[in-house]
Structures are given as structure tokens and as C-alpha cells.
Design a protein around this nucleic acid. Structure first.
Lengths: 124, 124
DNA sequence: CTGAATCCATCCCGATACTG
DNA sequence: CAGTATCGGGATGGATTCAG
């Protein structure tokens, strides 16, 4: 399980936000959902590209537990599940955008790269 | 070494900022330095409290390599080293503050805790 | 005082295979 | 389609000891 669970007693807000969003995949996932449209499991997986089922389902489960994403399951055949951001999740988006801005500027200065990443807010 | 080195080719700004600031201690360290006054090694260690030498020196070294903190060494006896934020490091402070704001609000809602942490911007 | 060296436990992440 | 089960490598965080 994630680091989030064991240290729920660590009261520092910064530790808290790191607990919620650290890991390799959570920010990319939130970014995809930030567009507003609910996405299906396979859709997220396809957009991210190189994520495995284990990491995707685990990340989604933890984000759901932490109140960032909402999971809506439709009992159909074949099964359909859609993920979207909760209100709390939408609240973080500006913060992430600001962070991405800083990071982009930093990267341009130090690496002169174009940030051709499809997964974050800085593209286009 | 940090994850930062191997994936320098990962061009996503969000990955970049996570690379620079993830880990258990870097944000607390930056927070202490954000007050503006240069701090000595032992001073940082005392303020954080439960960090070991290994983690502190490693974190500082990586933050220095990434251009966030500046290390000033005075050749005296006993040796004295002072750490402070670079301009780039100061630029991140507002972002971290915003993040801490969100996290604090989130924690108050879900845990009703008082965030009695000395290490972050939300105290006092 | 400011670290470096060594050793060790944990856990994050991933590949592969399988299920309702 | 939307996941779970299992196994394993490598990174990360830490205790202890030692050094300039």
C-alpha cells in the first residue's frame, strides 16, 4: 500500500500533499482528468501509454480513497467505469498548473527542451 | 542517487518538479530556508529534528545540484557551512505555499487537525 | 562541526499471467 | 472491459560508525 496510510498522523500539510500526489503516475492521471470529461479506465491507460494495469488501478484507487477522483461504475456488459475529478480534485488543478509553470520555466532555462509532453498542462 | 539523474530525458515538467522535490525531506528543508536567513547544517538538522546525517546531506546536495539551494562554505575552525535559497529556489516558494494552503484546507476538512507542524508555511 | 561509509529494511514499480 | 495475483529488481530511507 501507499505511504499515505501509515503516516496519517504526520500532520504537516506538505507531507500530506506529497503523500497524496507523489508516485510516478498520479499527477499525469489528474492532468488527464482535469480536462473535465470523465474518462474510462482503458482511455486513461491509452493516453498515458506506458502505464501498467497494476500501477493504474492502484493509483486510481488511492486517488479515490484520498477524495481526488470519483469512480462511477456502470453495470453493463461489457463493464464500463468512468473516472472524473471530485470538487477537491478540481481545487488542486490550479496548484498543479502553477507548479508546472515553474517547472517548465526551469527546464527551458537548464535544458532548453520543448516539453513535448502530452500529459501535463503546459502542452499547447 | 536520486531519480533525477537517470530520467533527465523525461521531458514532462510535472515529472521534473516531482523529481526535484519528492523525497521525504526536501520540502521541509526548503521551508526552513524560505524564511530568508542562511542556516547552518546543524541548525537545519536541529529544526527538523528527526532527520539523519545521511538524509540531510544527501538532500542538500541534490537540492544544490538542482539549483535550489546555495552552499557557502567558510574555511574556519570549526568548519562552518551555511545554506540558503537561490533565486530559483525563492521562485518555488509561492508554489509551495499555495500547495500547503490546499493541503491544510484538505486536512482540516478530513481530519480536523490543527497542523501543528513547525516545518511548513502554514504555521502561524 | 560537517559530513562520508557501510550495511540493511522497506517499498515502489514493473512484467507477466489470469479473471469476471 | 476493467481489473487482480504473483513474483522480483532496484531505488529509497535509516542506524550506526567513522573522519577531516
Amino acid at each position: 500500500m501507499s505511504i499515505t496510510q501509515k503516516n496519517q498522523q504526520s500532520l504537516c500539510p506538505l507531507r500530506h500533499i506529497l503523500n497524496v500526489f507523489s508516485g510516478k503516475w498520479k499527477l499525469p492521471i489528474v492532468c488527464m482528468l482535469a480536462a473535465g470529461k470523465p474518462l474510462r479506465y482503458s482511455s486513461i491507460k491509452r493516453k498515458i501509454g506506458d502505464i501498467t494495469n497494476v500501477m493504474l488501478s492502484q493509483s486510481l484507487k488511492e486517488l479515490e480513497r484520498d477524495g481526488i477522483v470519483h469512480r462511477e461504475q456502470y453495470n453493463e456488459v461489457p463493464p464500463r467505469v468512468e473516472y472524473s475529478l471530485t470538487d477537491k480534485g478540481k481545487d488542486v488543478v490550479p496548484v498543479i498548473q502553477q507548479a508546472a509553470q515553474w517547472a517548465l520555466k526551469d527546464m527551458q532555462q537548464s535544458l532548453a527542451c520543448g516539453a513535448n509532453c502530452e500529459q501535463c498542462f503546459t502542452t499547447k
